[in-house]
Computed example of a mutant assay.
Amino acid sequence: MLKYLSVTVLLTLATTSVSALTIKASTTTAATTLFTKMFNEYQKRSNATVDFEPGTSPAAQKAILARSVDFAAAIIPLDENEEVRDAEDVLHIPVALSAVVMTYNVPGLERPLNFNGRVLSDIYFGRIKTWNDERIARLNPGVTLPNLLVTPVYRSDPSGYSAIFTNYLTKVSREWEARVNDSVIVDWPVGAATDSEDKSAKAVQAIPGAIGYMGLSRALKDRLTFGNVQNAAGTFVRPTESSIEAAGNSKVTADGTANITYAKVARAYPISNYIYVLLRREQRYAGRTEAQAKATRDLVAWMIDDGQQYNASLYYGELSTDAANRAKKLLATLTFDGKPFR
């Protein structure tokens, strides 16, 4: 677990003289780069502090359910079957789009490899054992692939990345859906286990022939090689801010969520996801004041509006107009002591 990252950020309050406030958050590591930038920029307008602890999406969800933070951030929605009564009070506010990428360690290649769902499921079923397997070769004509063992790397801890990747696999492989399915904890058929994104990245770097899944921001930070993935339209797509945004063009639901893996959009990267801020609809809890509630609301409002300008430069997708409007409507339903507040 990473240490808290303290960043001073603006909270637009109605009064002219306001004592400093501290907003506490539990967030997914998928958003660390973006949140750090956003909060640093928002600092120029603020007198308050945000302490956010990057970790897994399941850990962030537990924190907001436990009422131990002002907001949380996750790349997957709350499980509808877990703590249903309490989860109904939690809003999902989309703030950005990101992607899970397939990183690999195959020396000597000059261009990114192409993957499709069948090949990726066969790799994680243990059926493709070497990188020069004909199933990989067919997707990469003209590429000389080595006779190198394939080592699938996976997460054994509760992970939003596991949930997104396996949700994609259920859509491209009926066998995966029937035998393994999708979850934050997966009974992986084969592979090398890690219990964090950091360890996954290090495993891919250390093991010749390794392949793993992780967030785009992490792969870029560690300068890992990652491939193109065939989408529902049959196109091999590079994960970029524009291809991630294309996946997010489908409408979000009334509760602010959307499943956008394997989206039927021509330019869409097929293992894309939203990043959600999780807020309790009733903001009076755990001794929080109305000023604290307004401060949190104002910060999130800025993230889905002016804050969107920082997404693309950090390889995150911006919200579509539909998603942004839905986020604003949800944010307007917050209450304090049962009453709407300005």
Results as ranks from 00 to 15, higher is better:
residue 179 R to W: 05
residue 161 Y to K: 02
residue 191 G to W: 10
residue 253 T to I: 00
residue 317 G to K: 10
residue 285 Y to C: 05
residue 193 A to K: 15
residue 18 V to Y: 00
residue 258 A to D: 11
residue 3 K to L: 05
residue 250 S to F: 06
residue 285 Y to I: 09
residue 31 A to G: 11
residue 27 T to M: 06
residue 295 A to E: 07
residue 71 F to T: 08
residue 93 I to F: 10
residue 21 L to D: 08
residue 233 A to I: 02
residue 271 I to N: 02
residue 265 V to L: 07
residue 134 E to R: 15
residue 219 A to I: 08
residue 228 N to F: 09
residue 224 L to S: 11
residue 186 V to G: 02
residue 196 S to L: 10
residue 110 E to M: 10
residue 167 N to V: 00
residue 66 A to T: 03
residue 67 R to S: 12
residue 225 T to D: 14
residue 8 T to R: 11
residue 328 K to D: 13
residue 209 G to E: 13
residue 282 E to G: 04
residue 31 A to C: 03
residue 204 V to A: 06
residue 82 E to G: 00
residue 297 R to Q: 14
residue 48 A to Y: 01
residue 124 Y to L: 05
residue 321 T to Q: 10
residue 285 Y to W: 13
residue 324 A to D: 00
residue 194 T to P: 06
residue 170 T to N: 05
residue 212 G to C: 07
residue 49 T to E: 09
residue 80 E to N: 08
residue 304 I to T: 14
residue 217 S to T: 14
residue 264 K to T: 09
residue 166 T to S: 15
residue 272 S to D: 05
residue 231 N to Q: 04
residue 79 D to T: 09
residue 118 R to H: 07
residue 43 Q to V: 05
residue 245 E to P: 01
residue 309 Q to A: 11
residue 19 S to V: 11
residue 206 A to L: 14
residue 284 R to H: 14
residue 92 H to C: 03
residue 235 T to E: 12
residue 276 Y to L: 05
residue 25 A to E: 04
residue 317 G to P: 07
residue 157 D to M: 04
residue 13 L to Y: 02
residue 23 I to A: 06
residue 71 F to C: 06
residue 302 W to F: 12
residue 221 K to H: 12
residue 63 A to R: 07
residue 44 K to P: 00
residue 111 R to W: 01
residue 86 D to R: 15
residue 14 A to Y: 05
residue 93 I to P: 04
residue 150 V to W: 08
residue 95 V to M: 13
residue 139 L to G: 06
residue 256 G to W: 10
residue 217 S to Q: 14
residue 294 K to W: 00
residue 118 R to D: 08
residue 28 T to W: 03
residue 148 L to K: 10
residue 189 P to W: 11
residue 112 P to T: 09
residue 68 S to L: 04
residue 288 R to G: 01
residue 311 N to H: 12
residue 178 A to L: 13
residue 208 P to N: 11
residue 215 G to E: 07
residue 18 V to D: 10
residue 134 E to F: 09
residue 75 I to D: 11
residue 2 L to C: 01
residue 169 L to E: 02
residue 239 P to S: 08
residue 11 L to G: 14
residue 62 K to F: 04
residue 256 G to M: 08
residue 16 T to M: 06
residue 45 R to P: 00
residue 249 N to Y: 06
